[in-house]
Simulated assay, not measured.
Amino acid sequence: MTPPQQAGLRWEVLRALGQAMEGVAHGHPSLSTAFHYLRLTERAWVEVDRALDDVRFEVPAEQFVAVAESQGAQSAEGVQLREALHAARRNAGLPWESPESLTREQCVALLFIAREFLKRLPAVSAGPLLPSLPISARSDT
């Protein structure tokens, strides 16, 4: 993948995670419904799934909100997170379904953490650390 395509994909995935977070917070009945109208490319779906799976692997579901709030304190999007969590609490009585048994608030936090993790990854690989060294394989002799 060339860098402009990768940058476009990264932007698409970040935008999708943010829009889904807002959708869930403001009343979409499930995470899949929040993503339904976004019209993502096939590659973007793969990256969204990967970003969400990375969070699910690293953070237990019961800690999503606490971790999101701590991450939000370190980022410029902290105000947006607090507003989304507040909206999710207000909309807790609306119909909601989650195959993972997440609450609406936990789902908002999941999406926020996934977006923060993705933003902190390098946009383009820096390449080999020491390109002048002719390292091709490790030999344990």
Rank of each mutant, 00 (worst) to 15 (best):
T2C: 10
T2V: 12
P3L: 06
P4D: 12
A7K: 15
A7C: 10
A7P: 03
G8V: 12
G8K: 14
G8F: 02
G8R: 11
L9W: 08
R10K: 10
R10N: 09
R10V: 06
W11C: 09
W11P: 01
E12R: 05
L14I: 03
R15M: 08
R15D: 14
L17F: 03
A20I: 11
M21C: 12
V24C: 07
A25Y: 09
A25F: 07
H28P: 00
H28G: 00
S30I: 02
S30M: 06
L31D: 03
S32D: 13
S32M: 04
S32C: 03
A34G: 03
H36Q: 11
L38G: 09
R39P: 01
E42P: 09
R43W: 08
A44H: 04
W45H: 15
W45I: 15
E47P: 00
E47Q: 10
E47C: 10
D49I: 01
R50N: 05
A51Q: 02
A51M: 02
A51S: 09
L52K: 00
L52V: 10
D53T: 04
D53G: 09
D53F: 06
D54N: 06
V55F: 01
R56T: 00
E58Q: 05
V59R: 00
A61G: 07
V65W: 04
V65A: 04
A66V: 14
V67T: 13
A68S: 03
S70R: 15
S70Q: 15
S70M: 15
Q71P: 01
G72K: 10
G72M: 09
G72R: 01
G72L: 09
G72Y: 02
A73Y: 14
S75H: 00
A76R: 05
A76I: 10
E77D: 12
G78V: 06
Q80Y: 05
L81M: 01
L81S: 08
R82Y: 07
R82K: 05
A84T: 07
A84M: 08
H86P: 02
H86L: 15
A87S: 15
A88L: 11
R89E: 01
N91H: 14
A92W: 02
A92K: 12
L94G: 03
P95I: 10
W96K: 00
E97C: 10
S98T: 02
E100W: 03
S101I: 01
L102W: 04
L102I: 04
T103M: 11
R104Y: 08
R104V: 05
R104T: 07
L110Y: 01
L111Y: 02
L111K: 06
F112I: 08
F112P: 05
I113Y: 00
A114F: 03
F117Q: 05
R120V: 13
L121V: 09
P122L: 13
V124I: 15
S125T: 07
A126D: 12
G127E: 11
P128F: 03
P128A: 07
L129K: 07
L129H: 01
L130N: 15
P131V: 15
P134V: 08
P134A: 10
I135D: 11
S136R: 15
R138E: 06
R138C: 11
S139P: 13
S139C: 13
D140P: 00
D140N: 02
T141R: 13
